[in-house]
Amino acid sequence: MAVSSSTSTSQEKQALGSHSQAQFFVWREFVWGAIAGAYGEGMMHPVDTIKTRIQSQAILDGIQNQKSVLQMVRSVWQADGFRGFYRGVTPGITGSLATGATYFGVIESTKKWIEDSHPSLGGHWAHFIAGAVGDTLGSFVYVPCEVMKQRMQVQGTMTSWSSMMMKDGISKSGNPRYSYYTGMFHAGSSIWKTHGLKGLYAGYWSTLARDVPFAGLMVVFYESLKDVTEYGKQKGMLSLNWHVNSSLEGLVLGGLAGGLSAYLTTPLDVIKTRLQVQGSTIRYDGWLDAIHNIWAKEGVTGMFRGSIPRITWYIPASALTFMAVEFLRDHFNERVGGNNLQEVARLSVDNKKSSLQEIS
């Protein structure tokens, strides 16, 4: 009987190990993360265009002539029509494919590795680090796409951009000096020829300074909201007959987590945007100089400029993304890991029976 018990224990460990390995790397997480990220960007790109223009208008038009959200929407529509809201959508979707894939593809494996190998970093610290690592990996593709996207967003039509460049030549107002981009590849090649790799990665560190805390905070808020929801269920605060599909739960909680994280990191987004759109005429000499100048000239209002369209973008984008991921976990993880879990459960019962027989 001792041999039988040992064999069962060995089989159980083997089944647990294979299940752990299957959960450590799930390629579906990368695919669905990429699709969800691209879908969210495509749907919410017009809002992102308004946010980018609002945050960068201090460079383009001067501090005294800055427009409100409604004024900017009207201005884009009058100058460029519906197409104006989708300027830069191709590099935007390309960057979101990369960040969506790495964020959700890496986040689960990183989080579980931290919790298993470094228990002291478990809980919210594990969630924060996992989100930060996943987003950092995507930044190598995302940042060049973000530079191209934002420059295309602020240019508008070729006529309006040419007119602005002529005014810049006369008034020396400090507007960015770069050619009009007809598409993503033209933008990339033009930036490369003019500024090289440094131009494509303009504002890279400011992007990380924004995205690392944003990505980490979003996971922490999401997991915390899930804990609060579960606590409410256990304490009877929610009706026992009340059941919410996990995809719908991901939609609501993901939206709340994304919106809150977006608002708290708006100042970092303002700095990043202005560094990336300023072009050849340098107005801000680095991250710290940008903080000093924006705070001195525009105060709190300047630091949080564009917060409304930023939140408006992130709430539905985050909601759709988390909903897709929860849907994946519900439907695909069960198929992948269901057999192993049943095998582990069966082996555990057999192991207990063998131990009881051995004692008797």
Rank of each mutant, 00 (worst) to 15 (best):
S171W: 03
M323F: 05
N340T: 13
F185H: 02
K226L: 13
T136L: 09
V3P: 04
I308M: 07
E12D: 10
S6H: 11
D330W: 06
F332N: 09
V143K: 12
W27R: 13
K297F: 04
Y181M: 03
V147D: 02
S307T: 15
V228M: 10
T207C: 10
F214P: 02
T49Q: 00
D48T: 14
Q71P: 00
N245D: 15
T229Y: 13
I107P: 01
S318T: 12
T281G: 02
I129W: 04
V336W: 00
L16N: 10
S189Y: 04
Q150C: 06
G122F: 03
S348R: 14
L238Y: 11
Y231F: 12
T281A: 04
S68N: 13
E12Q: 15
S120M: 04
D227N: 12
A262D: 05
P316H: 11
A257M: 07
L121M: 12
V349L: 08
N340S: 07
W125T: 14
Y222P: 03
R274P: 09
F322S: 05
M72V: 05
S120P: 02
G123A: 09
E108Y: 07
R346E: 03
I311C: 10
K167Q: 13
P46H: 06
A101K: 05
S4A: 15
Y284V: 04
S246G: 01
V219I: 10
H19P: 00
Q11P: 02
S160I: 09
G123I: 02
Y222N: 11
G122L: 00
D227F: 00
L121F: 15
L60C: 01
K51C: 08
R210K: 15
L356D: 07
K226Q: 14
S354W: 01
I294F: 01
G131M: 14
T157V: 07
I359Y: 09
P213E: 05
G84F: 04
W113L: 12
